[in-house]
């Protein structure tokens, strides 16, 4: 979904850049709470992994492909604030080294893929975790569903931005239908990849999954109470 230069007009691109800078600033402050000596190395790995998986375009229907955005994956693995930082670094490197996403559109792309997918992904994940049984085995599926939801949400935000400052005079209804249609399909891929990746980490080192900490702490408390009883 990397927006190139030219899709959105200058005022809209400037506005998204300002908001994106604000979001990254908030993320830098918030990430301090999430990151310690143990989790900081994970953040570098998560960003590198998302960069690599974003290269793996998978087909969705005739002549179209999609790739992981990674916001929900990052949020569940390292926390939402650190997740924003991870995806933003990926987008910055893609923009500067690979001309993937426009320079003037960097703020737009950070908002779409670095902030919207993280926020929506994290909120859906927390909602599912609050309403479902507190079990570690459910974390990968909850993350997968959250990841699925995050992609059409980003597509929706793009359509909103295009309605405000799109370069071409096109029908917003058809744009909305087209963007949501294809990104629901891409969202399925996002959900599957996120489910598999979180499942792999949960199987090996569940304590390294930020979003699993609460269910892990609960599990340890249960074990202790059994021992003392």
């Amino acid at each position: 979904m990397h927006v190139p230069d030219g899709f959105l007009d200058a005022p809209t691109s400037t506005a998204t850049a300002v908001v994106a800078i604000g979001c990254v600033g908030v993320a830098l402050v918030g990430a301090r709470k999430e990151l310690d000596d143990k989790t900081a190395p994970m953040a570098g790995l998560v960003a590198a992994f998302i960069f690599a998986v974003q290269m793996l375009n998978f087909p969705v229907g005739a002549g179209t492909s999609g790739h992981l955005m990674g916001g929900a994956l990052a949020a569940v693995l390292v926390g939402p604030f650190t997740g924003v930082l991870c995806v933003s670094v990926v987008l910055l490197v893609q923009c500067l080294l690979f001309a993937d996403g426009g320079i003037t559109a960097l703020g737009t792309n950070i908002l779409l893929m670095g902030v919207a997918t993280v926020v929506v992904g994290w909120l859906v994940f927390k909602l599912l975790q609050t309403t479902m049984p507190k079990r570690l085995a459910l974390v990968p599926a909850q993350a997968g569903i959250a990841a699925f939801a995050s992609v059409p949400a980003a597509a929706l935000l793009f359509v909103g931005l295009y309605a405000v400052g799109g370069a071409a005079d096109i029908s917003m209804d058809t744009l909305l239908t087209a963007m949501l249609g294809v990104h629901v399909l891409i969202g399925i891929g996002e959900g599957v990849i996120t489910f598999l990746a979180i499942g792999a980490v949960v199987a090996v080192r569940p304590d390294l999954v930020y979003g699993a900490r609460r269910v892990l702490a609960r599990r340890e408390l249960e074990i202790r109470s059994e021992v003392t009883a």
């Binding site: 927006v3 030219g6 375009n57 087909p59 969705v60 179209t64 492909s65 001309a99 993937d100």
Partner: peptide, 28 residues
């Protein structure tokens, strides 16, 4: 990996605003 255009690129082609893209050369 699939070489097909991604979701947004395909939509921009179908909806007729792909030509508003200002492309540039990549450093790498």
């Amino acid at each position: 990996a699939s070489g097909s255009p991604d979701g947004l690129t395909k939509v921009s082609e179908d909806q007729g605003f792909a030509d508003t893209e200002k492309s540039r050369d990549a450093l790498l």
